[in-house]
Structures are given as C-alpha cells and as structure tokens.
Design a protein around this nucleic acid. Sequence first.
DNA 1: GGCTCGCTTGCACCAGAGTGCAAATAATGT
DNA 2: ACATTATTTGCACTCTGGTGCAAGCGAGCC
Lengths: 112, 112
Amino acid sequence: MTNKKALPERCNAALADALEPEFFKALCDPIRISIVATLAETCEPTSVTDIVDCCGIDFSGVSRHLKILKDAGILAAERDGRHVRYRLETDSLARTLREMADALDRCSAQLS
Amino acid sequence: MTNKKALPERCNAALADALEPEFFKALCDPIRISIVATLAETCEPTSVTDIVDCCGIDFSGVSRHLKILKDAGILAAERDGRHVRYRLETDSLARTLREMADALDRCSAQLS
DNA sequence: GGCTCGCTTGCACCAGAGTGCAAATAATGT
DNA sequence: ACATTATTTGCACTCTGGTGCAAGCGAGCC
C-alpha cells in the first residue's frame, strides 16, 4: 500500500488544470464540430464564406462560431486581402487532448 | 503531390465521428470537471453525498450532473445498499481523448 | 409497518447560448 | 470618393441548461 494521501491535491489540481471547461465548451456545438472537421479535411486556410457551406446557418452565426473556436485556441485566423482565412491548429489540439489523457493516467497510476 | 482528393470525405467523416459533441457537452461545465477531477483523485466508487462536498451546489443538482456524466459514458454507477457509488471510467475516457488526437493526426498526415 | 437516510425527479425560475436580420467595419476595385 | 465584397457586431428573439426547493422513490433500520 503506497502513500495514498501523499499527493492527492496535486493530482486533482493537475487534472482540473488540464481539463479546461472553456476548451470543451468550444467543442460542444455540432456546428463547431463540423467546422473543425471541415478545416481538418482541407487543411489549408479557408475563408468564412467557404466555411459557411458546411454549416446550415447564416454567415453571421458562422462568424461567431469561428470567433469562439479562435478564442479557445483551436483555430487561427489571418487576414488575406478582404478575406479572413481560418485554419485548424491541428498539432496544438491533438497535443491538448493527449495531455488530458496523460493527466488522467497519471492520476490513476498513483494509486496502484 | 499525392492524391489530395482521394479520401477527404472519409477523413471528415472519421473526425466528425470521433469528435462527438455530446462528449464535449458533458465536460463543458466547471462543476462536472471538478467531479471528474475528484473521482480521478479518490479513484474508488464514491457516494453522491461525498461528491457534493466538492461542488458548491445543492445535491439535487449534483445528482443531475452525475447523470449527465454517466449518460456520456464518463462515469459508471453502482448501487451499494442505499448508496449509489460513482466512479470515473478513467481508461475509457483517456482512450476516447487519444482516439480524437489520432483521428486529427491522420487527417493532417494525408496531405503531406 | 413506520422511519430515516440517500438519491432522483418534477417544477418553476433565471442566465446564457445560438440564431437571423440589419447595420457597421475593413479592404479592394472603379 | 463611391460602390462592392468579406467579415464582424448590435439587437432582439427563442431555446436550452443549470439551479433550488419540494415531492417521490429505494433500501436499510427500529
């Protein structure tokens, strides 16, 4: 039996730190998921007008969804003339997901 | 230049399939995150009454949060006398997160 | 059987999120 | 300067989600 009470707070804090609600909130909308999937597919900076096609809503709504994803660090935006092109931060997103998984594993590993 | 147009739909579908909005919806609330973190820490089935301590709300609300997490497959519940003990499906959760990361990597790998 | 404890569920309420429309801003072309 | 295209933002609306309170249900205890 290892010291079960030795570092529980640290474990909890690390997990709670890794599992950022804002991150999940950004991805809990089906339209935002389809945006992410679309950008993952094309993998090159895409204008708002083009992205609108994959969502069934007004472009103003799409613009707002894009802002939410950008603020969460999931997308990056860059102006190109009068277009604004969005691209998926694939590496960063994948890393974030794996860090969460790692934090979970570390928590359960401490008890065995 | 590889065949860029060869399997974009499959890629998109695989990602959209892996990135389930319901999963993120279950984790987009700060109280639910603290529940997950608490259960990851203790790592043993915990009663609702004990879980309530980590959230600042009424136990009825906690019960509802637990149901949401259970329905999403993130927690498991088992009756023990008059207690209902919840535990975190750590392995399953970590696997889900890694599968998402893998699906993302696969999408971007197809283009290079 | 009645009682208490532990948890869930119905109800009403309030705050927040998504949406469309229209106006505002940004950048380019004429 | 004006018109046009691309995107963002303000506004109002609706719908969903989280919350507390109170009632209901399930399981053990007297």
